[in-house]
């Protein structure tokens, strides 16, 4: 599933809720798989369906609104709080998103997202409102995310830069993960253990 992320231009799905916790993103009863794949179909399960029944979608939930689609998920502040389940990142990625934009991410979620090539883009509260307004006014609005330049922009020219640490940026641009790096320094880890 590892795949480099460089530049994404896509319409977005605006999920206007704050403090979205990972229990909502993927409810606990769907954590029983032993592989990483196929979680997308249970993304926001309880917000998407009545009584757990796929035949009964909740039409007012944004993922069920055919007008909004794309590789970018816009979300309110403090996205991904709660349980550390990486299944949350897997389900968002598996559903088809490559980027989540919010004005704040919970720490563990952010790490999990980065480890799964799902780019968390943290913007200011004001810019987040601008993005929401643009997408709500015109669902076809394409947002550009350029990881190399660390920028996120609307077609009208409004843009903002975002932070990402340089190590993680290199990993995402090149499709490397942390484990590749850690394995490459194993002799150093062993030497460290002796001094410890």
């Amino acid at each position: 599933m590892s795949k480099a992320i460089q530049y994404i231009k896509s319409s977005a799905v605006p999920l206007a809720a704050e403090n979205v916790d990972t229990d909502q993103i993927i409810p606990a009863r769907f954590l029983k798989a032993t592989s990483r794949d196929g979680f997308g179909k249970n993304l926001f399960r309880d917000w998407r369906y009545f009584n757990d029944d796929e035949g009964q979608p909740k039409s007012d939930f944004i993922l069920n609104n055919p007008v909004f689609k794309g590789k970018i998920l816009l979300a309110g502040k403090n996205f991904g709080c709660g349980s550390s389940r990486e299944h949350a990142a897997w389900s968002i990625k598996d559903y088809g998103f490559d980027v989540v934009v919010s004005s704040f991410f919970a720490d563990i979620f952010k790490n999990n997202a980065l480890n799964n090539f799902l780019l968390p883009v943290q913007v200011s509260d004001a810019f987040l409102q601008t993005l929401f307004a643009a997408v709500q006014a015109n669902p076809q609005t394409e947002i550009e995310v350029d990881l190399e330049k660390q920028s996120i922009a609307l077609p009208g020219g409004e843009q903002e830069t975002f932070d990402i640490n340089s190590y993680k940026k290199t990993c995402l641009l090149n499709g490397y993960d942390d484990l590749d790096f850690l394995l490459s320094i194993k002799p150093e880890i062993e030497a460290f253990e002796k001094t410890f």
């Binding site: 550390s84 563990i108 790490n111 190590y167 484990l179 850690l182 880890i189």
Partner: peptide, 22 residues
């Protein structure tokens, strides 16, 4: 502190994690 499953794999494989100082 809590970690995700990819990190569980890293610790199993190397007893280390990459962490930014909070």
């Amino acid at each position: 502190f809590g970690i995700g499953t990819s990190e569980v794999e890293m610790v199993l494989a190397t007893q280390c994690l990459l962490q930014s100082k909070p």
